[in-house]
């Protein structure tokens, strides 16, 4: 898995750097000064980075498997900030090198290729602002997704038009082919994720079998495959779920499976937290659902030889952990397990009855941790501190594989605590929710 990871990182670096190296090779126009050429190189680099984003987010399983797709999206977000800095630097350097060119910003004198470049620049700024500040701007997730895709296409298409219009370094045959290939791979990635994948989902629909109300404003949606055998997933993975619309409508939402990987029916346990999830209680048995799945590297099945597992969950982060515990129970697993699960109160403690039952079926130590304990509560309370984790980490902690799922600050804090307590970083795995 590590080798595969390094291979895909090398592929990524090659993809983003190749067009830059192509600037060096073959017939090139005469140098027009350091700032001018620096600006030009950053312009090419930023457009290439934007184009590669289409490949990054196309959910190719072989490329995302070594990392987990959650981290790919996180990387996409970080790389986009870098690309935006280059996009901003491109005109700043250019106008510094040739201030006369500022006149071309006056509309009567603006050539079409400069207008395309300005359009691409503005689309990129809008992409970043709406992505980094979606919640503060009050943009609904579905509207953001649709706008994000449209703005990304506009940014790249106008950016490519700008390059073709300016005509530097693309008018030589093989360089034109290189840029053509980059453009074609963007279109192919877009077609794969927006046309091929929805078509496959339409051919393999699911039907809602049951809706179960859980403790803590959570609901479990149980789905059965309709006219097909479903698919196998690894316990702890997740799916993009579409309800109440076509898979072409870009109204899919990522949720972890909470069901056992050994059973045919699939379930998702969803907390009512936002526009889409607040509608989950309206789901009715018999309704159609579509799945793009399975994805994710957060799974016991990636570490089958572990001598035991140590799970830490916060809030609805229990969903993928339930999938792993239910799977281990179905398999009759006897390895030692720990679950440290933090939630607000015992009354709202999602899955508490089933977790207590699982301690009978599995070699499981279940440690509920309450943020708002009721009077008389004798268990653990407060945050998942290093001291609390230390109390339950077994002596043979180096042989345990740890899984953490919950809010990002909790994940980061628990990762630090486990690492400081002697657990190898290669044995600590986490799953991010709620990236945008």
């Amino acid at each position: 898995m590590y080798l595969q990871g390094f291979f895909w990182i090398a592929v990524y670096l090659t993809l983003v750097l190749t067009p830059l190296f192509a600037l060096f090779v073959g017939p090139t126009p005469a140098g027009e000064g350091f700032l001018w050429d620096f600006s030009l190189a950053l312009g090419f680099a930023s457009l290439t980075m934007m184009a590669v984003m289409f490949l990054l987010t196309a959910r190719f399983r072989s490329a995302t498997a070594p990392f987990g797709i959650d981290i790919i999206y996180y990387f996409h977000r970080q790389s986009s900030v870098v690309a935006l800095l280059f996009v901003i630097a491109h005109p700043v350097l250019l106008f510094t090198a040739a201030p006369d060119m500022l006149l071309m910003l006056w509309p009567p004198y603006t050539p079409w290729h400069l207008a395309a470049g300005i359009g691409s620049f503005l689309a990129m700024i809008a992409l970043m602002v709406t992505s980094l500040r979606r919640k503060q701007l009050g943009i609904e997730y579905d509207n953001w997704r649709l706008g994000h895709v449209l703005l990304a296409v506009i940014a790249v298409v106008l950016g490519a038009a700008h390059i073709v219009g300016v005509g530097h370094y693309v008018d030589v045959g093989w360089k034109g082919v290189l840029w053509g290939l980059i453009g074609a791979s963007c279109i192919a990635a877009f077609a794969y994720v927006r046309l091929y994948s929805p078509a496959r989902q339409l051919r393999h629909p699911y039907r809602v079998k049951e809706l179960i109300e859980e403790r803590g404003d959570a609901w479990t949606v149980v789905l059965s495959p309709e006219g097909h055998d479903g698919f196998k997933f690894e316990a702890g993975q997740f799916a993009w779920l579409t309800l109440w619309s076509s898979p072409y409508a870009l109204k899919e939402h990522p949720f972890s499976f909470s069901s056992s990987a050994e059973r045919k029916d699939l379930s998702f346990t969803i907390k009512t937290l936002g526009d889409f999830t607040n509608r989950i209680p309206e789901v009715r048995p018999g309704e159609l659902a579509y799945l793009d799945a399975p994805y994710g590297a957060f799974s016991i099945d990636r570490h089958p030889k572990a001598k035991g597992y140590f799970f830490v969950a916060g809030g609805i982060g229990i969903a993928p952990v339930m999938s792993m515990l239910r799977t281990l129970a179905d398999r009759g697993d006897t390895r030692p397990l720990h679950l440290i699960f933090g939630y607000s109160s015992w009354d709202r403690f999602t899955f508490r009855e089933e977790l207590e039952e699982l301690t009978q079926k599995l070699n499981l130590v279940f440690v509920p941790v309450l943020g708002e304990p009721h009077e008389g509560w004798k268990g653990e309370t407060g945050m998942l501190t290093p001291e609390l984790l230390e109390r339950y980490l077994p002596e043979e902690r180096t042989e345990r594989v740890c899984f953490i799922c919950g809010p990002v600050p909790m994940i980061e804090s628990v990762e630090r605590s486990l690492s400081a307590a002697g657990v190898s970083l290669s044995h600590i795995h986490s799953e991010l929710f709620d990236l945008v």
Partner: peptide, 30 residues
């Protein structure tokens, strides 16, 4: 940890691109 690695990789890639761009501008105008 994965977050830190992903962040480092994204910014490392950016630095590589920046270095390659500076190198191009210097060589092309030498």
């Amino acid at each position: 940890m994965r977050l830190k690695i992903a962040t480092l990789l994204a910014w490392f890639t950016g630095l590589l691109i920046l270095a390659a761009s500076v190198f191009f501008a210097v060589v092309h105008n030498a």
